[in-house]
């Protein structure tokens, strides 16, 4: 198991409820069942212990160990009520699986009767049930993720049109350094889910993130980021409503920045943003109008043959 899967398994032990993983096929006896009958049930059902009920309430557990004691005493006609263990720990069906794990570890018992809120016996569980429950849940989670990925990958095959695109639109707030990057993060996740080559995903993510941060840092009222995805290419569009870039050529010079010191304290203003975008994309078009705004368009081709411009860009 990979570390993430181990973490997932740990999480599941807390998430899974006893009621989800216990065995509901209860075989019970009453206090006046003979040990001879107990022996037959344990053998035929291939189980190691039986809850003993008295007037519908749990009175104890009779296990193989108790059976052995009665065999040693040559006392198979005795009643289960005489040989059962009466001090029985129970566990609530709504408690997390990890509770059962703790009880098994602490008491060294092999099985725990499960009761509902009113204390009625509803099931029984063994350490094996926990393992089985976690494995089943892991398999289900894995399967669901696989299906989601499969569906996403085939979205462009399933939808018929002359030109199908997926368009993601984001509002980028100004100077929110805690939330900034959320849009690019979601674009990246979407591309991963669509099964795009990770190297291309990384180029899109870096270009998109730099464009997003430019809006966060330099715009006057925030702006917008749009990613259009189709089977051939990914087009990014970032636009804002000002203040505009006075000298685009200068702005493209590596290391040139108009960002104030406090922006540098936030980790930006290296004067590399636009250069990084250019290095990551196949086509870039930057237009700006003083006091009106800036519009950056960039294209990254998904198929290497169409990305000829990439060599020049890098």
């Amino acid at each position: 198991m990979s570390p993430t899967e181990v973490l997932k398994a740990q999480e599941l032990v807390y998430e899974l409820r006893i009621g989800d993983i216990m065995s509901r096929r209860l075989v019970t006896v009453t206090a006046d069942t003979t040990m001879r009958e107990v022996k037959t049930i344990l053998r035929d059902r291939r189980i190691s212990g039986l809850p003993v009920l008295d007037g519908g309430n749990l009175a104890g557990i009779v296990s193989i160990e108790d059976l052995i004691r009665s065999l040693e005493e040559n006392d198979l006609d005795a009643l289960a009520g005489q040989y059962m263990t009466t001090l029985v720990h129970t566990i609530g069906e709504r408690e997390p699986a990890v509770r059962a794990l703790n009880v098994f570890g602490r008491l060294g018992v092999g099985r725990l009767p499960v009761v509902d809120d009113e204390g009625r016996l509803v099931g029984i569980m063994t350490p094996d049930d926990i393992t089985r429950g976690v494995l089943r849940a892991l398999e289900k989670a894995y399967h669901e993720e696989e299906i989601r990925r499969y569906r996403a990958r085939h979205v462009f095959d399933d939808i018929k049109s002359d030109r199908t695109s997926l368009i993601l639109r984001y509002d980028i707030p100004l100077r929110d350094f805690n939330r900034a990057g959320r849009a690019s993060s979601q674009i990246k996740q979407t591309l991963n889910r669509l099964g795009v080559d990770p190297r291309i995903v990384r180029r899109v993510a870096i270009a998109s993130y730099e464009a997003e941060m430019n809006i966060v840092i330099h715009s006057v009222a925030g702006g917008n980021l749009v990613a259009e995805i189709n089977p051939e290419l990914i087009a990014l569009l970032a636009y804002d409503t000002g203040p505009g870039i006075p000298d685009i050529e200068k702005a493209m010079t590596p290391g040139y920045s108009t960002a104030p010191d406090w922006i540098r304290e936030m980790g930006f203003g290296a004067g590399m943003g636009l250069c990084n975008i250019k290095a990551c994309v196949d086509q870039m078009d930057l237009n700006s109008w003083p006091r009106q705004g800036t519009r950056l368009e960039a294209v990254i081709y998904l198929k290497p043959t169409e990305g000829k411009a990439s060599d020049e860009a890098a």
């Binding site: 350094f177 805690n178 900034a180 990057g181 990384r202 870096i206 993130y209 730099e210 941060m213 540098r264 936030m266 980790g267 930006f268 203003g269 290296a270 004067g271 590399m272 943003g273 250069c275 990084n276 290095a279």
Partner: peptide
């Protein structure tokens, strides 16, 4: 400490050392 300086480089499978404490 400036993130765009880092993004100029290929950081796949790399260790990034920084003094920048914000989520960026």
């Amino acid at each position: 400490d400036l993130m765009s300086d880092a993004l100029r480089y290929d950081l796949e499978h790399a260790l990034l050392i920084s003094g920048l404490v914000n989520p960026q």
